[in-house]
Simulated scan of single mutants.
Amino acid sequence: MTKIKTPYHHGDLKAAIIKTASKMLDEQGIEALSLRKIAEKVGVSRTAAYHHFKDKNELLSAIASQGFILWQKQTKAIFDNKNLNHQQQLTQFCHGYIKFSINNPNTYDLMFGRTLWKDNASSDELKKVAYPSFEHQVTMTKYWQEKGILPPSENSLRLAQVLWGTLHGIAKLVLDGIYTDNNNISEMCDCAIALFINTKTN
């Protein structure tokens, strides 16, 4: 029996492919992904899928882009929350980063892993959302410095990079299965926050 092809508008099909691919990534891992399999699941021809993505790498970049958009949305909600004081903002940002990585492990690996960044394989679309995402973190870092939460004497870019590197390190320890106890993970995050905040008084 021939599978009925689902009619899609131009933008709808691209979104449907990314959504299906993201689900397959979470369930089966990156090795299981192929445009042919994804097109089959969506219910369109492989040619239709290739019309939107020239290869698997471009599709992976699109998935990572969606991850950055989601994370940027979450960080903006924290930064714009007027009910939080500055230290609470920083605390929620750090814990939120670890939580995001745990909830989206495969997407997180694409966002910050060697698959797309090691050999400059990331698409222009991905770079357009990834770089501003970090620039926003630099802006937040500078703001927290101005408010006395983070050490004002440090270069904002370098401080943002070190904070990110610390959180990324914790995230990778969790995703690689080295740490699995939620209490340990939360305490590590709190320890990192305390170290960054306390440096301003040294």
Rank of each mutant, 00 (worst) to 15 (best):
K14D: 00
H51E: 11
G113P: 15
K172M: 09
H168D: 12
A171V: 00
W164Y: 14
Q28M: 06
C189P: 01
Q161M: 13
L167S: 00
L90K: 10
N57S: 09
I98D: 10
L60V: 07
F68V: 01
Q145I: 04
T139Y: 11
D55Q: 12
G96W: 15
M188S: 04
A192G: 10
C189N: 14
K41G: 06
P152V: 13
N155A: 08
I98R: 12
A77L: 08
M1G: 14
I17H: 00
K142T: 03
K82G: 02
K82T: 15
Q88K: 14
K56V: 04
K127M: 13
G177T: 06
P151L: 04
K200N: 10
S156G: 02
A64T: 00
C94D: 10
G113L: 15
N81L: 11
L110G: 09
I149P: 02
E58K: 04
T139C: 03
G29F: 14
Q161K: 06
G177R: 12
I170A: 12
L163D: 01
K23M: 05
N104P: 13
G169S: 10
M1N: 14
Y108M: 05
K147L: 04
E31Y: 11
Y8H: 12
R158L: 12
N120Y: 15
K41S: 07
G169R: 05
G165Y: 04
